[in-house]
Structure formats: structure tokens, C-alpha cells
Amino acid sequence: MNIFRFLGDMSHILSFLLLLHKIVGGKSAAGISLRTAEMYAIVFCTRYIDLLWNFASLYNYLLKLLFIGASLTIVYFMRYGPSQKATYNADEDAFPVQYLIAPCAVLGVLINQDHSSPFEMVWAFSIYLEAVAILPQLFLLQKQGEVENLTSHYVFALGAYRALYLLNWMFRFMTEPDYQQRIVWLSGLVQTALYCDFFYHYYQSKKGGLNKSVKLP
């Protein structure tokens, strides 16, 4: 464990707390993509299936349970919560996710760390899917132009978590002799790159104070 990874995990937890606060606390799903929420639920339910046999680290075990629980809670409220459904904009949240899920599934089968292990295929699928899972959310924000304050902090924290993981992989590459995780590096690079445009506008808008809403052209 190193500081980058720890901060990355904390940023990830923060993104969940912000989203739960908005959807469950604020009873509003305005500007939030259900498609992204559902893809993240798939990402965690597939990647953390090793909860059933991998007890190597209590820290990981607890956070895996937390991430699966939080992502399923978000999907549940967005699908069945009366006020959440009323504020969710289904026709704007229209990114064709089948064009994301299918290629990731093919890549997961073809490019993974152990072609004899179904779990490695599922694990690789989950890594690839996470890299693109934010697209429907960014697509929705782009369409709406204006990003509500809490939503902008949620997306920022979610983007920051994987950016911190990139630093964590660089750190581990330099400090651990034969550490190499090409699959997560490349996926994490793609994932973080997708946020660059948002990060730029987030920084521009927050320069003048944390409560300004983010404007996307």
C-alpha cells in the first residue's frame, strides 16, 4: 500500500458519498447517468467476485463490499426511487452502452493475464469496462451543458481516483523489482484521459470559488 493508492481509494469512497448524498439524501437524479451507474455496478460485481475466495487483505475485502453495496444502492434508487425517477432524464441518458460492453467482453477473453482462468477473463473485462464506464455520464453532462455543483464534485472525485492509481502504478513500478500490470496501466490511462476535458472545465469554474457550477461547451 502506498499513499497514492490510499488517496485514490479515499477519493473513490468520496465519489460514492457525494453521489449517495445527492441521490438518496437529495432525492434527485438530475444530471446523473443511470447507464454509467449500472456499468459501474457490473464493473464491481465482476471484478470483486474473488470476495468468495480471496481474503488476503481485510482492507480490500471491506472496500470491495462497500463499492458493490454502494453501486447497487445507487442503481436501485435511480430505478425505483419515486423522486429519483421523476428527476432522472432517461431520453438524455442515451449513450449506446452495448457498444462499450461488447468490445470489453471480447477484449477480456482475448487479452488477460491467464487464458486458462475464467476469473482472469472476467477481471480483465471489468478493468476495460471501467475505463469507458464514465462515457454515458460525460455524454449526459455535455448534452446538458451546465453541471450542478454536487455532480461536478462527484465526477471530479471519480476521475481523481484513477489518476491517483496511475501514480500508484508508477510508484510500484519504481519500487518493486518485477512489478508490471500492463492491462491496468493502459486502461487506467484511457480512463483518466477521458476526464481531461472535464478536469479542465472543472478547474476553470472552481477557480472562482467551489460553488460555481461547471459549464461545458
Binding site: 493508492r5 481509494d9 473513490h12 474473488d50 480471496n54 488476503a56 487483505s57 480490500n60 472496500l63 470491495k64 463499492f67 493475464q113 491467464d114 487464458h115 482462468s117 482472469e120 477481471w123 492509481y165 500508484n168 512489478y179 508490471q180 500490470q181 500492463r182 491496468v184
Partner: peptide, 10 residues
Amino acid sequence: AAEAEEHDEL
């Protein structure tokens, strides 16, 4: 192929 690194990260 690289031996399957055990997945010690989230």
C-alpha cells in the same frame, strides 16, 4: 505470458 499477478488492488 506473464504469470498472473495476484490482484492485490481494488
